[in-house]
Design a protein around this nucleic acid. Structure first.
Lengths: 232, 232
DNA sequence: CGAGGAGTTGATTCCAATCAATTTCGGTGG
DNA sequence: CCACCGAAATTGATTGGAATCAACTCCTCG
């Protein structure tokens, strides 16, 4: 079961890899009999959560809109990641929308099961708290990022995130992401035009290589060094 | 005991007001025999937490530095708020520094007590999760804020935060904050000069009134309307 | 094969940072 | 009590980075 992967992902950590098999068994994971296609919405801002989702295949973008209508991608959820647990715990309506960025399949954990597990299993609770803490850490880090970094740094960071999240194609070494330039900009908090210009700059400087829409990171170290003072 | 205040604070919620008296008794609250003066550091970025702090009197700023050295204030903790619980749960060194913005007194909850309580008291755990969730919600909101808002909106938001956090003086209606203009800018993620100019604009437009360093919000509604699409 | 979305590029604008200089204020020691 | 010092606040001038506006090309997919 791929949940047990142990790779150390940069941005998110695989929640399930930290659970025991027994704990996973208690989850009553129920596979949703539906494959979400690119762009399909899993849940919408404003809706009330009645279950927790677990990404099983694919990558989901969690995004919200500023008042001007500009989109901001809050995070990317990959296999093993939870979706919508924050709203569930806070008992709030979703404040963000979740959409598939590629063919995606999900498990569902009924709300009751989830809360029962929290109540019965302190170990599970602790792990969930740790997950929340880590997400909070990332979000706080992103605040300072948005406030202080240049477009160039933001795009470099976004590309590194894509690299970590989607991985690379064995054949052509391109990042296996289906995100558009606009969406990359939405991660970085930057306009589409600036995103394109910056990606083009990186290309000219041989830090990356553009092959159509595909991006190949040719000099990972230089890309990383664009992101100063990176916090692991 | 002032922890039982019920005011609905805008940005943080008073953790202790949601606990039963019994739960509070279990906390082994230990008053720290020290009054922190304005500017004094409670804990430093990089240090390892060995206890949880509860603000009892005063307001504490939690802040970190971008690589250029620019400061960013992550949040303001007021009486009843917890300090350092994220790092404690994640078992990380502190990633931010906490300093008093005025005379501050703290309680301390030993690390062991804290974790024992989590393990023994599911209700407490749930409340802690809710707290984490709410902080996460705020942080995510701030990400989009930093990415998309103008200086004017950011300063308006910061002033509203000050108003909620410090309250106003009964005599002159000034916000009872001892923060400098620079610090207000550090909340908003804006330079000191831009902060001053914007505050001065609000003054000219009779949205606020400046009396020396003191700020009096004279037209709260207009100030609020500067912050479009405010999420409660 | 047409249409529309995605990508790209160039020109222009403008907001806010930066740089620079001056004033005000709060505290402190003589 | 006052003079003085350094920090904070303020104001002005300039710069620059990124958004915006606009036009065009290139896919791709129905």
């Amino acid at each position: 079961m791929q949940f047990f992967k142990t790779e150390n992902k940069n941005t998110h950590f695989c929640f399930f890899s930290s659970l025991t098999r027994e704990q996973i068994a208690q989850l009553n994971l129920e596979e949703i009999n539906k494959t979400f296609k690119k762009g399909e919405v899993i849940f919408n801002e404003g809706a009330y959560p009645n279950a927790l989702y677990v990404v099983y295949k694919g990558v989901v973008k969690v995004h919200m809109y500023g008042d001007s209508g500009k989109e901001q991608i809050i995070r990317l959820a990959q296999p093993g990641d939870l979706l919508g647990y924050r709203s569930l715990i806070s008992n709030d309506p979703y404040r963000a929308t979740a959409s598939a960025t590629e063919e995606t399949r999900l498990f569902k954990i009924p709300k009751d099961t989830f809360f029962n597990l929290i109540k019965q299993n302190t170990d599970f609770s602790l792990k969930l708290m740790k997950l929340l803490s880590d997400d909070l850490k990332n979000a706080e880090r992103k605040v300072i990022y948005m406030a202080q970094k240049s477009v160039r740094e933001k795009i470099a960071e976004a590309l590194l995130l894509l690299n970590d999240t989607f991985g690379i194609d064995e054949n052509n070494f391109a990042i296996k992401s289906k995100l558009t330039r606009k969406e990359i900009g939405d991660i970085a908090g930057v306009t589409t035009e600036s995103t394109i210009r910056t990606i083009s700059d990186f290309n000219k400087e041989n830090i990356i290589n553009i092959d159509g829409k595909k991006i190949i990171i040719t000099d990972l170290n230089r890309l990383k060094s664009e992101v100063k003072n990176k916090i692991a």
